[in-house]
Computed example of a mutant assay.
Amino acid sequence: MAGWSTHEGFAIALPRASVDTDQIIPARFMSASRAEGYGGFLFADLRDGAEEFPLDRHVDASVLVAGPNFGCGSSREAAVYALVDAGIRLVIAESFADIFAGNAVNNGLLPAAVEQADEILSIIGTGKVKASVDLQAGSLFIDGREYGFALPDMWRQKLVNGWDDIDLTRANLDEIRTFRAGRAKAAPWVFGPGGIKKSNSERPADENRGT
């Protein structure tokens, strides 16, 4: 996954509270291969029969502004896949479901919790406005107005570097090994009679053959 630190695009409004993951992508589409892309399934039931759905009016939008409690419901990661595959880089809402927010960051999508999300929804209306975000500076501009948003440092690292949880762990391997060695000296019984076992990454290449 490619990382990113700045983004400029158009923002559109979806003035709905508690948009759950089944609304983001209905369960019946989750049997499709991710390789085919999930973007075409995004908000399938909400768009079906709607005269003018925001994403249909403004197909070039990459920033979605919604009501509070976005991403509630099931923990399906496919909801994030659908948003990302449809070209959405940033979702703004007053609040997000915790599991959705974690899945979003692990897949390069920023869930920006903004207290003034209702104000932004009013500004956008049924149109689209320019939006920009700088992760390093922690700045967010919507239609020329600046808004604050919470961005934990761990989230910033993941988004900028294109990391998920495993990548973040690997970035701290030296500290992990140092802690493990100290723990082995202070409490050797924790590791059993054989002591510390080497991981595959610590073994010579010839020792890993056939494993």
Rank of each mutant, 00 (worst) to 15 (best):
F10N: 10
S199W: 12
V160Y: 01
F29S: 02
R145A: 11
L14T: 04
A27L: 04
A13R: 02
N106T: 05
L121I: 11
I123T: 15
E207D: 15
S199Q: 14
A17M: 01
L64N: 02
I12K: 07
A11D: 11
D164S: 11
M30A: 00
P204R: 12
P15Q: 05
N200G: 09
A113Y: 10
A112P: 02
D206L: 14
G71L: 10
Y147W: 04
G125W: 06
R156W: 09
E36M: 13
F29T: 02
V63N: 03
A27C: 06
D134S: 13
G3Y: 12
D98T: 06
V190Y: 10
R57S: 15
P15G: 06
A78V: 12
E94G: 14
R209M: 08
N107V: 01
E146L: 05
A150M: 08
D167Y: 05
I176W: 14
A104K: 10
L14F: 10
A11E: 12
A112W: 03
P68N: 04
P193Y: 07
K197D: 07
A82D: 08
F141A: 06
F43R: 04
L168W: 01
G192D: 08
S95L: 03
P26I: 13
R76T: 05
G127P: 04
E175Q: 15
P68W: 04
F179T: 04
E8N: 15
V105I: 15
S62H: 07
